[in-house]
Write a protein that binds this DNA or RNA. Structure first.
Lengths: 212, 212, 212, 212
DNA sequence: GATGAATGAGGTTTCATTCAT
DNA sequence: TATGAATGAAACCTCATTCAT
């Protein structure tokens, strides 16, 4: 296990032009505010105050509050998926591939802690095409994890309900934003090991009957 | 494992008087609306429409939107805790006790599916005393699970980080509201077994080094 | 100057029956609340809380908030006018008669300090017939004072604008509720003397040219 | 006695920019509405109707109804105090200085008749810091008058209770809004003379015993 | 005599958003 | 690019009042 692709230190796309830099700043503030107050509870005025840009000025960068959330969520999915793909490229062992997924997910979101909540907590607020698009990305991401788990399952001849197992794994990981405390719980590497142990120990146990 | 205490089929307190029945109805509608739109996204007008009672009339039953959420959340915690205590009374085996906890939690919230979200998703919207009170109940509930897990850990001589393990267990269980489909995923009993298997298999695996 | 008619120690009509006693209690609480919050700022709910009677129960005693204020104001005017008439009966000296008026007014309203504000401050909130009726009583009360002043004016051969003088006198007296502090300003007798001195000194000065 | 500083013909600050002009218009309408209905009885909707600006638009100019009243009252106190100071600069005779105060007060508030009520009648509705700030200005204004009266008292060797005398003077002047009718009562100059006569005659009379 | 339950209207304030500049 | 000014809709909540009991 030696992932090498770097964790982006920001929650927003790389930026070159002045426009891009401004947009990046706005998205960062928006993420922070959605994190604090939730999508519905956050107001564009809050964002205006936080970013120092006028209310009207913000609308030059996004066309609606919904689109704003969309852009943020889309970027998060795309970049964590990129990172996962990148890191999986170097690993072939089925178990390690699952561990890489877990570690990458945790590293990414523990490096951008507010993002984890904005993705998890505001999961179903987007409707229509926007919502469908995000749901699609989410499905791809799920599929990616499920494929890794299924590969391991096949390789080891395990027997368990993949759907429930994978969704439980996501539950463990996505719930973290409600309790994670860096001083108490250690870094992503530690957490990934612990959670990976529970998960893998759990599915491996389906080989033999569990100890009485 | 033979829990016998019945699952309340409603999300609200038992009701006798006309007042209680009306209140119960309102809380039920409110739960449904908080489920659909989230606390912030739900409006008292929505509740008025759904319950068929006038806006002003609703305020006869609760003094503020906040208090309304508070009453709902408090009732949920108290009644699931009651149920857990009730059912644990009959069980002494450490592993079974953990399984009873998982099953009870899932049975309760799968019987009241909207409640699970209202409890999980609107976890931190209550502030001040109200928020502190709910946080306190949550802590008790967590403590209850943690004690069961620690008892099992001691009984079997296992070695793992209890905090992370228990919080992961809650992650698996509380995440369910985002994906549960009764037609696909079976009932609470099945789900409780699967999740219990993963969790218990996971922590049992800490006895011996995990298989390579 | 020896007024003898007693100052009613209450702001409400004498009460015999249970109904009357209840009504009296309600009017007293209402006066207190109108005093504290003003007519517009006071709510029937405030009155309900203060009086310990249910919202609906109050309406057995008065038919509307307007009528409630009306009853209070009417009673105040009638009883202070009664008192004035009573005490004037014993006095014939024109100056003393003016002084009796001032003293009675101040004694009455300093004994019922909240009433003074409810009468002065909520002077023009009543509309239509109710308002006209109160305005009529007020006019009578004004007329009474004006007659006393005019009698003195004639008796002493003074020259001044009666209207402005009398209204100024009322200004001095009715403004008291904004500043009166019993510990600092003494009792009604003292205040009546001081204000009487200013007023009478002022109008007497119209005999001779004022000192340079 | 020849005061020369001009009376502002408006109740609101001078305005230059478009924003200032709009704000001035709003404050003027607000003063009129507070005059008509009282602070509590006036609604922002009333103001919206009167000013022709949308409800929400108004909030661009003030942050709350309370702040709105505050701005109005503060401006009134500051500008009448300015005017008084300005005019006192040219006068040294103690009696004339008192007369200048009376005249200025009346000229200012008779030129802005609604303001007088908004200042007098809504005296104690502002709470906390806002209320304390206004109370402070009021105290300064009172102090100013009291100093003039005390100077006269000392100059003439008079003997009377300054507090009661000054507060009575304010009573006479501030009560005017309840009865003033320009067609009947003449202009500020006339009224100031009459009220000044009563007041000064009254306190001068404390030199010698009043005529029997 | 008194209340619990309910209501329509309206209160203040904030929302996301727009448009001329 | 960015803002100041403005808006219609809707937010939460309270109002005076009623009516069956």
């Amino acid at each position: 296990m030696s992932p090498t692709a770097p964790i982006p230190d920001s929650t927003v796309p790389n930026s070159d032009s002045r426009y891009d830099r401004q947009l990046a700043k706005i998205l960062e503030h928006a993420t922070a505010i959605f994190y604090e107050k939730g999508y519905e509870g956050a107001s564009i005025r809050d964002l205006s105050r936080a970013s120092g840009m006028s209310l009207a000025g913000l609308y030059y960068y996004f066309e609606s509050k919904e689109k704003l959330l969309y852009v943020i969520q889309r970027h998060l999915f795309l970049s964590v998926m990129d990172l996962v793909r990148e890191r999986l490229r170097e690993e072939t062992d089925p178990e390690q591939r699952v561990r890489v997924f877990i570690l990458t997910h945790l590293e990414y979101f523990l490096a951008n802690p507010k993002s984890m909540k904005v993705l998890s907590h505001e999961d179903d607020v987007l409707k229509e095409e926007l919502g469908a698009d995000i749901a699609n990305l989410k499905r791809q991401y799920y599929r990616c994890a499920a494929d890794l788990v299924d590969a391991l399952k096949a390789a080891k001849g395990l027997q368990f309900n993949s759907r429930v197992a994978v969704l439980s794994l996501f539950g463990m990981m996505n719930w973290i934003y409600t309790w994670y405390n860096p001083h108490v719980d250690g870094d992503a590497k530690l957490l990934a090991r612990e959670i990976g142990d529970v998960f893998l120990g759990g599915i491996y146990a389906t080989l033999a009957p569990p100890p009485a």
